[in-house]
Amino acid sequence: MSNLKAHSIARKSLIRTFLFTVVMLILGSRFDAYNQAQLALVLILFIGVLSVTILTGISGQLSLGQGALMAVGGYSTALMMINYKLSLWIAIPLSIISAGIAGLLLGVAAARLSGPYLAGTTLVIALAIPTLANRFMSVFKGDEGLPVDVGYPPAWFSNTFGEPSYEKWQIYVALPFAAIALFFASNILLSRSGRMWRAIRDNELAASLNGVNYSRQKIYVFIVSATFAGLSGALYGLRGLVGPSVYPVSLSLTLLTAAVLGGIRSISGAFIGTVIVVYLPDWIEKALGNFSLSEQVSNFLPALISSLLLILVVVINPAGVAGTRLHKHK
């Protein structure tokens, strides 16, 4: 795996991405409206989970502040779309840059920290950042937030492909970004930087003896991971609202749960984990369809089960669902 040349890495990633896109398009056209919206959500969160896979799975740094980076992406997009009337196709790439800058700041602070210090600090950041919305009321509009959505497709699109439903249009907006994210993530994992970051995870001392400047590399990882989180957050906000309640701390935990459940070291694991997290409430409802549960129980049951699954996966097989396969590769 380590001897793959740049172009063959790119080709491998391209094939993966192409297959992924085709499968998603087929699923999107077969699903009903509800599942189309769910699929769009899977695509959006998948990008966010990839940010965790890169940061924690590949480089070994545990951050609970991914939700805050998602908020940066979401607010940037919303502000640009509302205040400057930019199209989402311009606003999102620009907000990826702003998330990257936030990631740079976070990375500079994080380069000095590790383990629980990093986890705790990023958790405080995840709690503190959304309160800025109330601090700068006039810009961020406080708890009320900024309403934005994916809008309607441009005329040429409707003329060529027919008028898509709102849910389908959500998929069409999210899919190109998810595909690009997948392509880059796949490239990173197979490339030299990926190997370098894994070296940092496995042994900081040895990596630095081998000439890896690990605090600089740590910052790079944070920037890259932040761009993924920012992109995910921008699309997540476009589901209707950008506000502090949209990016709670629990969102960071959801991403982490998904990444761990699927297998924190692989892209397929990230996708499997995202599907589990998004669909778990539906599956539980279906499984318990015959029992009439109070609202109190059904509201909290998915969270209870996903948390228990998280503990079980960690205790039984920390490599996750997709992780076992990866073991044999090594």
């Binding site: 924690t56 480089s59 070994g60 740094q61 545990l62 590790s114 383990g115 629980p116 986890a119 940092i200 995870r201 496995d202 042994n203 900081e204 982490l256 761990v260 998280l310 503990i311 960690v314 205790v315 920390p318």
Partner: peptide, 12 residues
């Protein structure tokens, strides 16, 4: 790895 040994209990 050291870093994952530190991270996994936090996740748990």
């Amino acid at each position: 790895s050291d870093s994952m040994r530190a991270a996994v209990p936090v996740i748990a």
